[in-house]
């Protein structure tokens, strides 16, 4: 119902100015504002003039064919992309109003505010408890009681508490792939982030685990802003509020998910979501 209403509202908006992202009655504040971002791997121009305002408490999906720069983009948001040698950027990304490329900006601090979930579940070869407590510990929390609470709260937040509460001391690698991925989400929640970046979090999971993660994303957006890269267009349509379509390092279209999937403005977007390429 709500979605339907939103759509009609958006369509009227779109009729007025089809190129601008629709503005809702009370637009949520922008968390991440990307302005004229360019990125090169050596001589390869991977991201071209990206402009993308990402709003609070929404799920923003990034779709596009392989090699279009969507993973690069999400890794730029917490500057993980800098782990690759020979990366250069220009332009700016404002996180809560401050340019993350500023010389004085501390990456470690940025990554404390912005959690990340990776494509392949990557728990540490430690116990479930130690996995979740890793973040709080590196940020200086030593009190066992506080850690206990954080671990429980994070595992509940990732909807996996009931499955693992009796074996918190077993190695995280003994869990199934889907459970491992939710442990990784819980681990990201434990640093109490503001934004959660998800880089194809379900591509290595079976359909049931995928469904669980998708449901989780829906719950999490109440408290977090979520940016999710996905290869799966149905997934983007199911779980996101906004969708950005990337192609060859450019943002072709960025709009409400319903608009993108039902009435895309650009022919290339339509070709992609209708499966004509990619």
């Amino acid at each position: 119902m709500v979605q339907l209403m939103n759509r009609t509202e958006n369509e009227t908006q779109a009729a007025v100015s089809p190129l601008e992202a629709p503005v809702r009655e009370a637009a949520k504040p922008v968390v991440y504002d990307t302005k004229q971002l360019n990125l090169w791997y050596g001589s390869h121009h991977a991201l071209k003039n990206i402009d993308l305002p990402i709003r609070e408490n929404e799920v923003t999906a990034i779709i596009g064919p392989s090699g279009c720069g969507k993973s690069t983009y999400i890794k730029t948001l917490n500057r993980m992309v800098e782990l690759v040698d020979g990366v250069r950027t220009s332009g700016e990304i404002l996180y809560r109003g401050r340019n993350i490329f500023e010389a004085k900006y501390s990456v470690e601090e940025l990554r404390t505010r912005v959690g990340m979930v990776f494509q392949k579940p990557n728990p540490f070869p430690k116990s479930i408890y130690d996995n979740i407590a890793y973040g709080p510990r590196i940020h200086g929390i030593k009190n066992k009681k506080v850690l206990d609470e954080i671990v429980e709260q994070s595992l509940r937040g990732a909807a996996i508490w009931d499955e693992v509460k009796d074996r918190l001391n077993t190695n995280a690698y003994s869990l199934s792939g889907g459970q491992q991925q939710r442990i990784c989400i819980a681990r990201a929640l434990a640093i109490e982030p503001d934004v959660i970046l998800m880089d194809e979090p379900t591509s290595a999971l079976d359909p049931i685990s995928t469904l669980k993660v998708e449901e989780l994303v829906q719950e999490l957006k109440e408290n977090y802003s979520i940016i999710i890269v996905t290869h799966n267009m149905q997934q983007a349509a199911r779980i996101s509020d906004k969708t950005a379509f990337f192609l060859n390092g450019e943002v072709i279209e960025f709009d409400d998910t319903d608009k993108i999937f039902q009435n895309p403005a650009d022919q290339r977007t339509e070709d992609y979501i209708s499966g004509r390429f990619g």
């Binding site: 782990l83 940025l110 404390t112 990340m116 540490f124 070869p125 890793y134 973040g135 940020h139 640093i191």
Partner: peptide, 26 residues
Amino acid sequence: PQHVREASYGMGATKWQTIVRVVLPS
């Protein structure tokens, strides 16, 4: 594996914390 280092960096750990807590134990 590189992906456990990334997990650590992704949570705001410094290089040294990552080396001591993730890389060296393995």
